[in-house]
Amino acid sequence: MIAAYARFGHVTLAFESFREFVLQGGLADDVTFINLISACSHAGKLREAWDYFMLMRGEFAIDPVRQHYVCIVDLLSRSGRLVEAAELLKSMPFVPDVISWTNFLSACGAYSNLELASEALYQVSELEEECSAAYILLANIFASAGRLDDAERVRKEMADKGLKAVTESSFIWLRKQEQTERLT
């Protein structure tokens, strides 16, 4: 129920379900807290997310897994608390993955924090040298900020590394017509 309420934006009902579950003697596990923290993240409830994170660690003696940290980093990033998000990414007991750093990079663009955006690109390139999407994202962030020389520098660095923008495509199979439509 907690996951269903969280998924459909009924955060208060998710919190109430959790309280009721615990009062009835239910044993919360790491998945329970992933759902609670994720609900907080989608609703922008940073204080509540931290409360559940600390409750999980303290009262329930559950060690956080990567997904708990990623939810908190996502919430910090979307709340504009980029320095805290970067610190948490660097201090996690796990190596942050490319997706975590790329999401953080995107938030840096939304809040025009070019310094942390550059740091995020560095972290992404350390994990995956051929991640052209992060270079493109940073170049676009610089261009949006009017720093066209920096945008060009990032594009040149990308070209020097032999990275190319990858065009994504999806295929839909239409059985009735026995043909394939290509969407780009």
Score class of each variant (00 low, 15 high):
1 M>E: 13
102 T>W: 01
82 L>Q: 03
57 R>I: 11
178 E>N: 12
122 Y>M: 12
83 V>N: 13
182 R>W: 09
53 F>N: 04
161 K>D: 12
123 Q>C: 07
113 N>L: 06
34 I>K: 01
58 G>W: 08
178 E>K: 11
67 Q>P: 08
141 I>T: 03
173 W>L: 12
129 E>W: 15
167 T>K: 14
68 H>S: 07
49 A>K: 00
135 Y>A: 01
114 L>C: 06
156 K>D: 15
117 A>Q: 01
117 A>E: 00
109 G>K: 01
104 F>I: 05
176 K>H: 14
70 V>M: 09
77 S>F: 03
29 D>P: 09
101 W>K: 05
54 M>V: 15
101 W>G: 00
3 A>L: 09
30 D>H: 11
28 A>D: 04
38 S>C: 10
31 V>L: 12
162 G>C: 14
165 A>P: 12
109 G>Q: 01
18 F>D: 06
119 E>D: 14
59 E>S: 12
52 Y>T: 01
67 Q>R: 13
121 L>I: 07
148 L>C: 15
59 E>F: 13
72 I>P: 01
37 I>F: 04
153 R>S: 08
94 F>W: 14
112 S>P: 04
36 L>T: 00
138 L>P: 00
14 A>Q: 05
56 M>Q: 02
156 K>S: 13
132 S>H: 05
40 C>W: 00
166 V>G: 07
180 T>L: 15
159 A>K: 14
22 V>Q: 04
64 P>N: 08
51 D>N: 14
